[in-house]
Amino acid sequence: MSIYELLTQFGDKYLAALLTTWKLTAISFTLAFVIGIVITIMRISPIKPIRFVGDLYVQIFRNIPGAALLIILVYAFPYLNFVWSYYACVLIATSLLPASFCSEYLMAGMNTIGAGQIEAARSIGMTFFQTIKNVVLPQALRSSVLPMTNLLVATMLTTALASQVPLKPTDLTGIVSYINTRTVGGVTAFMISAFLYCATAVIIGQIGSLIDRKVRILR
């Protein structure tokens, strides 16, 4: 099929798929970011068991394959009487996975803050949480704009997992198999989705480096 035929026949489906991917990406990224911050605070807390849980979280979710996590959520969890919709399962998987990477990036960002600053904050009487809130997190966040941009793109790629469960409307990856089961979509059907993914990734990358240039801390 030519690109023109494909777009007249499935144009609205592609648009819906693009919006689904964007929506999944936005929600997952927001959730991943919040979870990532919480996990990071847990990992730097002085209380050992809390630290351990934070570390364990990161080690589990950065090492488990996305497909395995989604399959467990969708097919295995109902056996434990946890029954969630397909949409919820996808969102849980695409939020929990990037959250572990988010925490890793924040930790790396924190390492760029010198020990002197933390000692200084402590010596003017800041408590642990004040130090975190006023000294550590703002700098860690500012120096992790570029990693976070990469994380946003990675989150978008992770949302392709949504194609593994029946969703309506389907995402950008799902639409390719949807079209190919109905007609001979060929390479073009694939290329349209690929182009939309790439375009989104490039736009995110551009915005990311723009923000990075504004907020980067020059040392």
Partner: peptide, 23 residues
């Protein structure tokens, strides 16, 4: 490089699974 980094693995798999056999 941008293409490789911007396209999800699953889409590449679908390409070799669904589209490649067509030609």
């Amino acid at each position: 490089i941008e293409f490789s980094r911007g396209v999800p693995t699953l889409l590449f798999i679908y390409f070799f699974f669904l589209a490649a056999p067509q030609f």
